Amino acid sequence: MENDLTVWRAKADITQAELADQVGVSRQTINAIERGRYDPSLELAFELAHYFDCRIEDIFDYESADD
């Protein structure tokens, strides 16, 4: 799954650690999401969207295997 989490975090001018604290995960989790090595749970995706006051689709771009 592609994502623009790094862009949203940069616009908010916060570190990975600060974002992690706000949504209740580790900095390593945020790093893994940004690098595309980990797809967040639906709950975490909602938490991130809520934090940035946007839709999940604004941060995450799901591409199915059939695309």
Rank of each mutant, 00 (worst) to 15 (best):
E2A: 13
D4E: 13
D4T: 10
L5S: 03
L5I: 08
T6K: 12
V7G: 01
R9F: 03
R9Y: 02
A10V: 12
A12S: 10
A12K: 14
D13Y: 07
D13K: 15
I14Q: 01
T15W: 09
Q16P: 00
A17L: 14
E18M: 12
L19W: 02
A20S: 05
Q22S: 09
G24W: 07
V25K: 03
V25A: 08
S26T: 15
Q28R: 14
Q28K: 12
Q28A: 15
T29G: 05
T29P: 00
I30K: 04
I30M: 05
I30Y: 03
N31V: 01
N31A: 13
A32W: 00
A32I: 00
I33Q: 00
I33P: 00
I33H: 01
E34V: 08
E34T: 01
R35L: 14
R35E: 13
G36K: 09
G36S: 04
R37M: 11
R37H: 12
D39G: 10
P40F: 03
L42A: 12
E43S: 11
E43P: 02
L44E: 01
L44V: 07
A45N: 05
A45T: 06
A45R: 07
F46E: 13
E47S: 11
L48S: 05
L48P: 00
A49Y: 07
H50L: 13
Y51T: 01
Y51F: 15
Y51C: 06
F52Q: 05
F52S: 05
F52W: 10
F52M: 09
D53A: 11
C54V: 15
R55C: 11
R55F: 11
I56F: 09
I56G: 03
I56A: 13
I56W: 09
E57G: 06
E57T: 14
D58M: 05
I59K: 11
F60Y: 12
F60R: 07
D61T: 10
D61K: 15
Y62V: 05
E63R: 12
S64H: 12
S64P: 14
A65V: 15
A65I: 15
A65P: 11
D66C: 12
D66H: 14
